[in-house]
């Protein structure tokens, strides 16, 4: 009987001590914001395009942290999904919507002679990358454009194109395309 009592007391006090320690730790080492959200946000491409169904990348990051699917980000593509899968220990899935076309970087371009200066695209742009004023021609700051597509639909006169970014000598990368092709010389 006393053995049982001792056991109970011992276990009970242990539980109490650990409980107190844990309780203290939870207050003392409290993290302000769930850092996982920050980490996810770091991985997302920050185009703020809303194609995931959330109004921006941070909200989607929060949604992912709360258990939403990781495959809703078309601009990030498979690379982002893979990184998210690595971070969260979930399985990498293919992109949820049938996102056609290759993953090329695009940037918005306003055909300026057709622009009527309606400012709709300015309001739609999540990163303020379009400058212009009412009834003045608008233009895109190409360096700031994330290629999110959001300005294309609101344009009443369809004067915004998404143009693929052309490589320049400065941005060109050694391509793997140059896999050796054996060309048989006509001379031999």
């Amino acid at each position: 009987m006393t053995t049982l009592l001792f056991a109970l007391i011992a276990l009970g006090s242990l539980a109490l001590i650990f409980g107190l320690a844990l309780g203290y730790a939870s207050i003392r080492f409290k993290v302000d914001e769930d850092p996982i959200v920050e980490q996810i946000d770091q991985i997302l491409p920050q185009t703020q395009c809303g194609q995931c169904g959330y109004p921006g990348c941070k909200p989607y990051a929060k949604a992912i942290a709360d258990g939403d699917e990781i495959n809703k980000c078309p601009p990030g593509g498979d690379a982002t999904i893979k990184k998210l899968a690595d971070l969260l220990g979930r399985e990498a899935k293919p992109l949820n919507d049938a996102h056609d076309g290759p993953d090329i970087k695009r940037v918005a371009f306003i055909r300026e002679d057709e622009c009527i200066g309606c400012t709709k695209c300015i309001q739609a742009c999540p990163v303020d990358a379009i400058v212009g004023a009412t009834r003045q021609m608008h233009t895109v700051i190409a360096d700031e454009c994330t290629g999110c597509d959001l300005c294309v639909a609101p344009c009443p006169v369809d004067c915004i194109d998404m143009l693929p970014v052309q490589p320049t000598i400065q941005t060109w990368q050694w391509q793997m395309q140059s896999i050796p092709v054996k060309v048989v010389d006509a001379n031999d």
């Binding site: 920050q46 185009t47 703020q48 941070k58 990163v127 303020d128 700031e144 994330t146 990368q173």
Partner: peptide
């Protein structure tokens, strides 16, 4: 060739990271 490609890959992903960071700041500022 592999190193050049790897360097280009790292440089462009750094660039992208910078750009994403800036886009985020601009988005939040907006």
């Amino acid at each position: 060739l592999e190193y050049r490609q790897a360097k280009a890959m790292i440089r462009s992903s750094r660039q992208e990271q910078l750009k994403a960071e800036r886009a985020k700041q601009r988005f939040e500022a907006r």
